[in-house]
Design a protein around this nucleic acid. Structure first.
Length: 474
DNA sequence: TGGGGTTAT
DNA sequence: ATAACCC
């Protein structure tokens, strides 16, 4: 049959091998050689086909899978006093994301709430989705727990050639076409996007069949557009954007803040300049914009306002950091701080153990109470983890936990003067700078990299974390 | 407003 | 270490 089975079969051909194999580590990859056999997606930015996959009310879906009784009932996922997300039964009743529990109960007192403060289940399901998408194609970039970008240019290219060989002139679109545009078979980009829509359908179907999750997809020629178009038909549907409707999509955005990449701060500054809409930004003199925001941001966001985005789909690979945080009304003694830290640490050590890599940096973050500006006043201190402790990460947590608590308490005292009264509303512990095992195995790639690597400018390439001048919190 | 994440400076 | 961005 014409349908291809799910992981693309390793069938035929020459240079295919190149892109089918993800590098062992996506981000540590050396600068790409610009040879003649460079993959098309990286060479040609104008002709890409990108899918954005956005799971429907992700946390609520995970909870409904865990407890199917909740399926047909209005369900909210609660963190502290907030309903962070809810299923569609609840949305029908007017419950909104990030609504306070008070408002939600007022709207509908029988609303079922489950606590979603522990992200473990969501995180695990999230990576199952990403892993599944990676079976189709190595270029998968995560955005939060519930969104992924997939660069399917190469798959589309392969199917296009197949179609051309068989002389088949029929192309069928899956799902919606933005603005109800019609496909022009003479236009090769139209045909590519149509093929892209079939692949998007297959991705969504695989996610549903294998994991039981539904979601939306957007198909377009870059990440910005794919993301924007994926939301046009909302639960469990998909939409493809043809180039002719690009303007339409971008100009229909009611506000600058809706453009991914233009956040709270830059929206405020743009408003200061008198800009209100995306069209305002398109028409604004670039020289003035550059003076206000700096050349790089100015040029980037002005391109975004035209729907242009040449940023690549960067494979996320394994996480760069592991963190856990807890917020509360009040924490005001060192003893309380220590208790909170111990709880955060226990879960983190478990996660790091399962990951297998070793963190080389540890960070503590706090939020201090302040009546004005309650959000955003976070501070942090970090330091390298002493080498003798790094080794112990794989083993039982019993021997490593108390030295880590000691380090974290030192970092805490560095941030907070404990001789004065304090009032914390959040504590967060983060492990980062993750490395594979010390790995001095002969014959492994690590052997050659560590032994042959040239001396750094400082003349020391071993254990140079340089996070903090003193080496450790003191 | 939660409990996470990323990259750039 | 912070600031911006994303969910």
């Amino acid at each position: 049959g014409g349908m291809e089975p799910f992981p693309p079969p390793t069938e035929d051909d020459e240079e295919e091998e190149d892109w089918l194999r993800p590098q062992s580590d996506g981000r540590a990859a050396p600068p790409a050689p610009t040879g003649p056999s460079k993959s098309l997606s990286a060479r040609n930015t104008a002709c890409r086909v990108i899918v954005h996959i956005d799971l429907d009310c992700f946390y609520a879906q995970v909870e409904m899978i865990r407890n199917p009784e909740l399926r047909e009932k209005p369900l909210g996922v609660q963190q502290k006093n907030i309903v962070v997300t809810c299923n569609y039964e609840a949305r029908k009743l007017g419950i909104k994301k990030l609504m306070s529990v008070r408002d939600a109960k007022e709207k509908f007192p029988q609303l079922i709430l489950v606590n979603g403060e522990d992200l473990t289940q969501y995180r695990e399901m999230s990576y199952k989705v990403t892993d599944l998408l990676e079976e189709f194609c190595p270029l998968v970039e995560r955005l939060g727990f519930d969104e992924n970008f997939v660069d399917i240019t190469e798959i589309v290219e392969k199917r296009l050639k197949l179609l051309q060989q068989t002389g088949c002139s029929q192309v069928c679109v899956s799902g919606h076409i933005y603005n109800n545009e019609t496909i022009n078979l003479q236009d090769t980009m139209h045909v590519r996007l149509a093929i892209g829509s079939r692949i998007a359908e297959e991705l969504r179907e695989a996610v549903h069949a294998r994991l039981g999750l539904t979601g939306c997809a957007g198909v377009a020629s870059n990440k910005l557009l794919a993301k924007l178009v994926s939301g046009t038909f909302k639960p469990n549907q998909q939409t493809v954007l043809l180039p002719e409707s690009c303007r339409d999509l971008i100009c229909n955005l009611e506000h600058l803040h809706k453009v991914p990449g233009i956040g709270y701060k830059t929206t405020k500054r743009l408003e200061t300049l008198g800009l209100k809409s995306v069209c305002d930004l398109q028409a604004f003199p670039s020289a003035i914009l550059e003076k206000e925001l700096g050349v790089s941001t100015a040029q980037r966001i002005q391109k975004l306002s035209y729907g242009e985005d040449d940023s690549p789909v960067t494979p996320s690979g394994p996480p760069q950091s592991f963190s856990e945080e807890d917020s509360f009304k009040k924490c005001s003694s060192e003893v309380q701080v220590k208790e909170k830290i111990e709880a955060l640490l226990a879960n983190l050590l478990d996660r790091i153990h399962k990951d297998g890599r070793k963190p080389h940096t540890i960070r503590l973050a706090t939020r201090q109470f302040s009546s004005t500006n309650k959000w955003f006043n976070r501070e942090s201190r970090q330091c390298p983890i002493p080498p003798h402790l790094i080794q112990k990460f794989g083993k039982e947590s019993s021997s490593i936990i108390s030295p880590l608590v000691d380090i974290l308490m030192k970092l805490f005292r560095k941030m907070i003067n404990v001789d004065l009264p304090f009032h914390l509303t959040l504590l967060s512990v983060c492990f980062s700078n993750l490395k594979d095992l010390p790995s001095s195995k002969k014959g492994s790639i690590g052997f050659y990299l560590t032994e042959v690597s040239p001396p750094s400018a400082s003349g020391n390439n071993v254990q140079e974390t340089e996070d903090v001048s003193q080496g450790q919190a003191s």
